[in-house]
Write a protein that binds this DNA or RNA. Structure first.
Lengths: 228, 228
DNA sequence: ATTATTATTGAATTTGGATTCAAGATCAAT
DNA sequence: ATTGATCTTGAATCCAAATTCAATAATAAT
């Protein structure tokens, strides 16, 4: 009798399946109750296994959640290849592509993103892991300052602060929009590409002190009316 | 014998003093270990009183910390009268004055600000309390959009998103600079008025898509070199 | 089919910390 | 000085949740 008619065609060791079930369950609980209220019992119940089984696979909740977050961070980092599609010098679309990833991550996994924020606030080790990843993205931009602005009087640290500050534009809105579901923002009913474009346009204005090229704006054209 | 030579000239009921000692201790512990690792024992030890005394004054840590945060929030809110000094139409200095308050709060009480962030993430009730306060400040700006931008095509909600997004500029940098002590930023050694001006200038660029008036810049003049 | 290994259960135990409380100390009022 | 009220102590108790573990079930190896 072949294995073709079983549920798991690529037969994996049984333990791996349970491990996966626990992870999936933990993600659901993270979304529902958040990290700080999460209990081991919540996870095992959600996974439909006995409480004791948890410790067969993980030593504690933190370990499990870190494993989950690590996977997602890896995804974010891998997706950065998207920049390759953008033609050199097309700064607006470069910003847009970064925001699209970021918006999508938040829309898809608000519970995970919230958890990343919480871990950053509570755990110095995780925090530097995450910041390194975030900083690397920002650095891409800071590095080309001398090229973008031939007359730039900023040193490397100042350029870094500048992009860091502008990066805050996305951080806050995405948290409010997707994680906290701030009704004042959610009421706008923005689709992912729209929000990404708005954020990119605002970043662009802060960066270049001018509006993005009209021809590139597909959703946020209204921003051009903010001029005087 | 008069009370003039006692330590507490304005004699207060004994209970009030202990209550105050607990609050002061809690603030110290918040700064040192943060809200989530804080234990009742930490607070009573810091205050130099017996563990059991805590419950004579507070039912739990959350109650105590909420009382502390409420006091600080009240301070932030009261300080908003600072806007009165700014002449009408002087947008850059209006932004600057807001950032000065915000920078100062973070510099002075990083532990409190971190705690506010944590409470916002964990407690929906506190979150809306804080957001209301924050939003009110942003709304001041959103309300004058039609005046600033006579040709604005944005509706009220869109204007709100715009200022909200720009507001993120400060949120993130202040957290990194004062709360987390991100070495990449702290290395810049910026005094409060300098940082406030940088942030105001960036906000201004995002808002107006142009540089702030050269004559207003006292510390961040370099930002004018980012132009092309 | 038998054996060895690994997975799973859930009741029992341990743990960290909150909470209670009886007893003693301090204070204010008379 | 006495009384009653309030403050303070710290050991005893309680509790929710983590953790262990002996027993059983499932699976893989021979």
């Amino acid at each position: 009798m072949s294995a073709a008619n079983t549920k798991a065609p690529a037969r994996r060791p049984k333990g791996e399946i349970a491990r996966e079930r626990l992870k999936t369950a933990a993600i659901a609980v993270l979304d529902r109750v958040g990290y700080h209220q999460m209990r081991i019992k919540d996870v095992t119940s959600e996974a439909g296994v006995a409480a004791g089984l948890f410790h067969h696979y993980y030593s504690d909740l933190k370990t499990l959640v870190e494993e989950i977050l690590e996977e997602y961070i890896a995804v974010f980092e891998a997706t950065e290849t998207i920049e390759r599609d953008v033609s050199k010098g097309d700064w607006f679309n470069r910003l847009r592509s970064h925001y699209e990833i970021s918006v999508h991550s938040h829309a898809e996994h608000p519970g995970i993103m919230r958890c990343i924020n919480q871990f950053c606030a509570d755990d110095a080790g995780f925090r530097s892991r995450w910041q390194e990843s975030y900083n690397q993205r920002l650095q891409l931009l800071a590095d080309v300052f001398p090229f973008i602005f031939p007359d730039s009087a900023l040193n490397a640290s100042e350029a870094r602060m500048m992009v860091r500050a502008l990066g805050g534009i996305g951080q806050d809105v995405l948290r409010e929009y997707y994680i906290e579901g701030n009704p004042r923002l959610v009421g706008l009913q923005l689709a992912e590409p729209e929000l990404a474009e708005w954020l990119a346009a605002l970043f662009y204005r802060g960066l270049f002190a001018r509006n993005p090229p009209r021809s590139q704006l597909r959703h946020a054209g209204k921003i051009l009316s903010l001029q005087r």
